[in-house]
């Protein structure tokens, strides 16, 4: 969901703001002659040439580049990564200048590598390629294997493959650290974003829920990819856990939904707010998300055990 939002926001902002972010960097880049330099040789596999100026235009590649790049190697990130709600690493992104995915501002940064998402606006990216800048597009991750593949690919492109392996090992260690699930029947969870959006089968969210020992209500209702789950359906399904993401402090109709008076009918449902930006992208942070959800599963089990105990007396 956040990804859709991120893409939408990026599109809106890129459309509405003339991109000034790169103009300062343009001064020192001007000397090197823009895209005149040949792109660094040795593409996907080897670890020889290390691109010196990397620009990322997508939240997911931003996060991976932030985690993997050498200091100074990443010269610009998408503006979404500075958004404290959408981005789990906004503090780490700190002072790295932002871009809005516009060809003009990115070209002025004179990058030798642009990391982009497969669903980013193709027009500026094609324009950058025609100007001789190397653009690498990354598919959306649908499971942990996709996440591992993207981590390794970004690391290889940045010329730091060993860091990629370390990051994958960190993710795997977090996933493997599984104690016996707290109960035999897996609880039903659903992740609810603004505007009734939820993640069904074939999404990272689904993979994270499964790794934490939950069944995903959205997937069981036949939703594949992103879909919407109405309040009516939630009331009748009565899931064990509803995970709502962080919200922006400012009003929007999309964020009003669980304030609907009928939501009080979800009294038995445990409702938690979690930084759902942890599982927007295929990063080692997924392990953190799984750990948080496992803690929720244990809390839920205790809650239910207490209820059952009280009921028995």
């Amino acid at each position: 969901m956040r990804r859709i939002v991120a893409i939408l926001t990026a599109a809106f902002l890129a459309g509405s703001m003339p991109g000034p972010a790169g103009t300062m960097a343009a001064a020192d880049a001007a000397g090197s002659g823009g895209g005149a330099e040949p792109p660094s040789a040795n593409a996907g596999t080897g670890a020889v040439a290390r691109p010196a100026r990397v620009v990322s235009t997508n939240l997911c590649t931003d996060l991976l580049a932030l985690l993997l790049a050498e200091p100074g190697q990443l010269v610009s990130v998408s503006h979404v990564v500075h958004d404290p709600v959408a981005s789990p690493l906004h503090q780490m992104a700190g002072a790295i200048p932002e871009n809005h995915g516009a060809a003009e501002e990115i070209h002025l940064l004179a990058p030798d590598l642009v990391l982009a998402g497969e669903w980013d606006d193709p027009v500026p990216l094609a324009m950058l390629e025609s100007l001789g800048i190397r653009v690498e597009r990354f598919p959306i991750e649908r499971d942990f294997d996709d996440a591992r593949a993207n981590i390794r690919r970004v690391a290889a492109l940045l010329g730091v493959p060993e860091r990629g392996e370390a990051a994958v090992a960190e993710l795997d260690a977090g996933l493997a650290d599984e104690k016996a699930p707290p109960w035999h029947e897996r609880p039903v969870a659903v992740v609810l974003g603004a505007g009734s959006w939820t993640s069904g089968a074939g999404t990272l969210t689904d993979a994270v829920l499964a790794a934490a020992g939950f069944r995903n209500l959205a997937a069981e209702r036949g939703i594949s990819g992103m879909g919407r789950l109405s309040l009516e359906e939630l009331l009748l399904a009565q899931p064990d856990l509803i995970i709502v993401g962080d919200t922006y402090g400012t009003p929007a109709l999309a964020e009003e939904r669980l304030r609907h008076p009928a939501a009080r009918g979800l009294g038995r449902t445990r409702r938690v707010a979690m930084p759902d930006n942890l599982w927007t992208c295929g990063t080692p942070l997924l392990a953190e998300a799984v750990a948080m959800l496992r803690a929720e599963a244990r809390a839920l089990a205790t809650e239910r055990a207490n209820l059952a105990g009280r009921g028995g007396r």
């Binding site: 809106f12 929007a252 109709l253 609907h260």
Partner: peptide
């Protein structure tokens, strides 16, 4: 609006809906 969801709600206000 500082809330990125607000922009997609232009549709609601210009076209109308009774959902939720």
């Amino acid at each position: 609006s500082p809330n990125p969801f607000a922009a997609s709600e232009i549709m609601f206000w210009l076209l109308g809906s009774l959902a939720d």
